[in-house]
Design a binder for these strands. Sequence first.
DNA 1: GGAACGATCTGC
DNA 2: CAGATCGTTCCC
Length: 174
Amino acid sequence: MLGLLLATGDGPELVVVRINETEAYTQDDAASHSFRGPTPRNAVMFGPAGHMYTYFTYGMHWCANVVTGRAGHGEAVLLRGGVVEHGLEVVRARREGSRARRPIRDRDLVNGPAKLTQALGIGPAENGVDLCDPTASVRICTDGAPTPAHEVTTRIGISVATELPRRFVTLRGR
DNA sequence: GGAACGATCTGC
DNA sequence: CAGATCGTTCCC
């Protein structure tokens, strides 16, 4: 997943982000939404790979995952961060909003799971979208770059299964 | 029916 | 470091 490109919008609204931070969640993992089996919320996780699973959290944020397992296996990869490859102005407008405040530094635009969804305009409408459908509101693709050099660490923001090495972060400078 | 809490972000 | 803010899940 690291190094892949996620795209939303079209024409002047086109935004492309290169993924540089992810976390893996499997069904046998107590920190995974799929751990207790299928529910209305996590249903997409149990569908075929290559679809987007979005969920609402902390009363205000949306997070985005790529479903990775075979149908019937609740697996997904949480997209935690990236860098803007295209559409910087659109991203900046979405992230800064209409509030009068100091500009957000480039490196702070997409360095978090909820920042990433806001930057790309991903929300409830994208839950279940086929990321391999070129006409979908969200697409995933590659520009041929190999998987970047990365480190593997424990995950962030969870209270169980904290010891599992399932966070993947592209090394700086790659 | 109700309560607790969360794969977070921001500003103080 | 606490507040924002509400859907989902689980327990009674």
